[in-house]
Simulated assay, not measured.
Amino acid sequence: MKHRTVVMYMEIGCFVSCLCGWILVCSTLPTEYWTFSEVGSIVLTTSNYYSNLWKDCISDTTGVSDCKDYPSLLALPVFLHACRALAVCAVITGFFGGVLTLIGMKCTKIGGSEIANARVTFAGGITYLVSGFCGMITYSWWANRVITEFVDPNFRAQKFELGAAVFIGWGGSLLLISGGTVLSSFAGKEGLPSSSPDRPRRPVSYATARTKRTYMMPASASRVTLVPPLFYEGRRSRATRATTRTGRTGRTFSRDSFV
């Protein structure tokens, strides 16, 4: 099986995983069971209190239930405002992550070249990661708040427990994070330029090339110096030959001996 086919099937699987996670996260917003508490006032009547980001509800065993929205927006605590903002950001970024991934996948053939599609898919994976982390922070923060109030012996108000929506949100966020991680890693290797040493280097120019002679010279003398007159080079060569001849014969010759 070719590498392109494997990557295509991987993208389809990650897209389905992220889409399911996004649907689970969206389903928790209208659900009332973020927290719940059961209070038995009478033997035959039991009251159930439950709430979410938007309203409080109460129901009893007689079948009567009533929900009431929070009365004032400005009177709400900062914790509730932050959870609302993070939950909405998780839904919005998950939607755009699905659009980008659907455009950049290899099986759709909507984009241009392979590199362009890989970059679009990489952007979709990063957007899915942002959506998953926003959702995970929201549900974890909410759960930490509920558990802290429940185990605190000095907390005198009504204590609540974790509802089903928090666990559903954890599962959806985990699917978003895992699918976004795989998408961004595979698409990033294909679409982003790599800085590995295996890339073709620029050919060395003639001015910077080293010959065998200059390579063996010390670092201070490796720089090429242009000397216009060639008389010194010839004189240096004759002196070198004379020194070599002297070393072979063991005799020293001077210039006056030839005169």
Rank of each mutant, 00 (worst) to 15 (best):
M1Y: 07
R145C: 04
K106R: 12
L100H: 03
A87H: 09
A242V: 08
V78K: 07
F95N: 06
G247H: 12
V78W: 04
W54T: 15
F133D: 01
D152E: 05
E161T: 08
H81Q: 02
P77H: 04
E161D: 08
C57E: 01
W22L: 15
S254A: 13
S195H: 14
L100T: 03
I103G: 02
S195A: 15
S257H: 10
T62S: 15
C57M: 05
G180V: 05
G94M: 10
A239I: 04
T252R: 15
V25M: 14
A165P: 03
M216Q: 12
S41F: 00
I23G: 07
R156D: 12
V7Q: 08
M136Y: 00
S184A: 15
N154K: 08
C134I: 01
T208M: 11
R156K: 14
C14F: 05
S195W: 13
P229W: 06
F258W: 11
V64I: 10
C134E: 05
C107G: 06
L162D: 05
R145S: 10
R235S: 09
I168D: 07
T45P: 00
S17I: 15
A123V: 12
T252Y: 13
P71C: 01
R255F: 14
V146G: 03
W170L: 15
I177Q: 02
A242K: 09
I12D: 02
V64G: 00
R245C: 11
P77K: 02
I168H: 02
V25R: 01
T62Y: 07
P193M: 02
F186A: 12
G94C: 04
Y50V: 07
P153W: 01
S195G: 10
A207N: 11
C14L: 06
I115R: 13
G180Q: 05
Q158L: 10
S195K: 14
T211L: 04
G125E: 01
C26R: 07
G124C: 07
L100W: 06
T46R: 06
L80H: 04
T108D: 06
F186Y: 14
P77Y: 02
G250A: 03
C89I: 12
R235V: 06
G163L: 02
E190Q: 13
L176C: 10
D256C: 06
F160P: 00
T45F: 00
R213K: 08
S51D: 08
S59V: 03
I115D: 05
S41Y: 00
I137R: 00
T61I: 08
L162V: 11
M105N: 06
T252N: 13
F231P: 00
S185W: 07
A116Q: 15
G104H: 02
A207Q: 13
R235A: 10
T181L: 10
T243F: 11
F150Q: 04
L230Y: 10
S65M: 11
F96R: 07
V120W: 08
F258Y: 11
E190P: 00
V130Y: 02
V166H: 01
A165G: 06
I110R: 11
